[in-house]
Simulated assay, not measured.
Amino acid sequence: MYEHILFPTDGSDGAAAALAHARTLAETHNATLHIMTVLDTSSPHIGMTAAGPEGATTGMTVEEHDESESGMVGEEHNIESSLQERSQAIVDAAADEVDAVDTVTAVERGPPHSAILDYADEHDIDLIVMGTHGRTGIERYLLGSVAEKVVRTSDVPVLTARLGDDEG
Results as ranks from 00 to 15, higher is better:
T41S: 11
S12F: 07
F7H: 14
A89P: 05
E63Y: 09
A26G: 07
A56K: 08
H34Y: 11
A106Q: 10
S82A: 10
H113D: 09
V150E: 00
E85G: 06
I5L: 09
Q84P: 03
A18W: 13
D165K: 13
A120I: 15
R135A: 12
Y119A: 07
T37F: 04
H133C: 10
N78S: 04
G52L: 01
A89R: 07
A22H: 13
Q88M: 12
I90E: 00
L163W: 00
K149A: 01
D96Q: 10
E167P: 00
T136S: 05
Y141R: 10
L159P: 02
D118L: 03
E108N: 01
M130A: 11
G71M: 01
D165W: 10
V91R: 04
N78F: 00
L33D: 11
E64C: 03
G131I: 10
T153A: 05
S42I: 15
V151I: 11
R135F: 08
E67Q: 11
A95Y: 07
E67I: 15
A89I: 10
M72T: 12
V38N: 00
D13P: 13
M60W: 01
Y2P: 08
V146I: 06
M60V: 10
G131L: 08
G131C: 08
T136V: 07
T58N: 01
G59Y: 00
V91Q: 06
N30R: 14
A147C: 00
R86G: 02
S145R: 00
V151S: 02
D165A: 14
K149T: 05
D126T: 15
D40K: 04
T103G: 09
L25G: 02
I5M: 12
T160R: 01
P157V: 04
G134I: 15
H65L: 03
E67G: 11
H21E: 13
A18T: 15
R135Q: 12
I125F: 11
A94E: 09
S114H: 13
I138D: 11
A161Q: 06
D118R: 06
E97V: 15
M130Q: 09
T32D: 12
T57H: 04
Y2I: 13
E167S: 06
E148N: 04
D121R: 04
I35M: 08
V104Y: 14
Y141L: 14
S43G: 13
G131W: 05
T58E: 02
F7R: 13
E80N: 06
R23C: 03
V91S: 06
E76D: 01
L143K: 07
A100K: 05
V158L: 03
A100Y: 06
I79F: 02
S114F: 09
H133D: 11
T105L: 14
V107A: 05
G14D: 06
A106I: 14
T103A: 10
G74M: 04
E167N: 03
D165M: 12
T28R: 12
L163E: 03
V107W: 01
P8S: 12
A93R: 09
A161M: 04
H113K: 13
T9A: 13
A100R: 07
E167F: 02
A16R: 11
T24Q: 07
G47D: 02
T103N: 10
A147R: 00
V101Y: 01
